[in-house]
Amino acid sequence: MRFDQVWFRYGRRAGWTLRAVDAVVPPGRTVVVLGRNGAGKSTLLQLAAGVLTPVRGTVRDRPPVVGWVPERFPADQPFTAGQYLQRMAALRGLRGPAEVERWLDRLKLTEHCGTRLADLSKGTAQKVGLAQALLVRPGLLVLDEPWEGLDSVARTLIPELVADVTAAGGAVLVSDHRGEIAGLPDAIRWQVTDGAVRPDDDAAPDHVVVEVAVRRSEADQTVTRLRADGHRVLGIRDPHADDTAGRAR
């Protein structure tokens, strides 16, 4: 799956949340999206899943079956966990309770099968969210902060589920702002900063990021000089011109 010059904003008057995103999610691999709160990680994930549509550019080669685990499971629904998963299975074209029962069992949800969604704890609701995304094996699994609310035992499930999907040739996109990435050692890392997405290969321990403000007229000259000195310029942004900011040169 490929992001091809994807731009996104939440309204005509809003600033760009993501700008000129060019990135590839290889099949069979896991991509961890890093970034501070509000950087645009969830937006990027929803664009990948197809929940949001780019304002400019396109997302190409999205697999036909996409599983999406939203950051907050929509628990305000008048169903029990079992009824909800059965209905979601029907939406995916599954007949019979076998697949639902398999996931209830695997995610240790069987005892909560008859509990109303609104009465579930945050972690249990999150597991229901995981189950609905995995009822049919996804070609792309999008996990938005999947560790939120899960206890230490349940947390170990995430790398297992991710490994299952990638082993079958599917791709996984997962956001993380809590440092849980250690459970996914082979993952590709993307960093979302100021609307731009770039590989997080500057995470080496001997590197730091220094933000420098320069006069507009001297920007090009400074970039050239920094590069000549062997530094890597990660991005240039103009705080007064939202639309043109943030593109790495």
């Binding site: 197809g50 939203p70 305000d76």
Partner: peptide
């Protein structure tokens, strides 16, 4: 009646 996020999940499914 459906929460926005659930509507999006349904959109992905069907």
């Amino acid at each position: 009646a459906e929460p926005d996020v659930q509507r999006r999940l349904a959109r992905l499914a069907v």
